[in-house]
């Protein structure tokens, strides 16, 4: 083999090894790499047992209730819902109909006692006028039979 062929082979082999290593590491991490589970996954029993975990979804419209210092709301993925109770300050962007990621534990009744509530926002950026126009268009579309 000519010298540069050999070097190319070594480099190629090295890259292949790195690629395989990366694939293995990613595969191992896959179970831990998700920041949160969905309400459907919780309902299916896929949530981690005995330790704190996070649920991500939308805050169900109309579900927000305050009870002294505790807030109650429901996290939904439009298929399954989990009731959440949280004592503390909610982030500014926390709103019904918007995304949220809650961290905590399920209690015996299947209610999620949250120690942390984070707001998740989408990737849309537009001025208020544009948002109003979008919402009006969506309401108009809904109203049409």
């Amino acid at each position: 083999m000519r010298p540069w062929h050999k070097r190319a082979a070594i480099i190629g082999g090295g890259l292949a090894a790195v690629g395989i290593a990366a694939a293995l590491v990613l595969n191992a991490l896959n179970s831990n790499i998700a920041l949160y589970v969905t309400p459907s996954e919780v309902a299916a029993g896929k949530a981690p047992h005995g330790q704190a975990f996070r649920i991500g979804g939308l805050v169900k419209d109309g579900s927000l209730k305050r009870d002294n210092l505790t807030v109650h709301f429901v996290v939904t993925d439009t298929v399954k819902e989990i009731p959440v109770a949280y004592t503390g300050i909610l982030p500014d962007l926390f709103k019904e109909g918007r995304g949220a990621v809650v961290q905590g534990k399920l209690d015996a009744d299947g209610r999620f006692i949250a120690s942390e509530v984070l707001a998740k926002h989408d990737e849309n950026y537009m001025p208020p006028e544009a948002k109003r126009a979008v919402e009006q268009a969506q309401n108009g579309a809904k109203a049409k039979p």
């Binding site: 790499i33 998700a34 589970v37 991500g56 998740k120 989408d122 990737e123 849309n124 537009m126």
Partner: peptide, 23 residues
């Protein structure tokens, strides 16, 4: 690929941007 707190891309090669033009 995964559930993240960070939102998805606002600009990409495949879909139109989800940002106002001046932004």
């Amino acid at each position: 690929w995964w559930n993240t707190l960070h939102q998805g891309s606002s600009v990409s090669m495949t879909k139109s941007p989800s940002m106002a033009t001046t932004m």
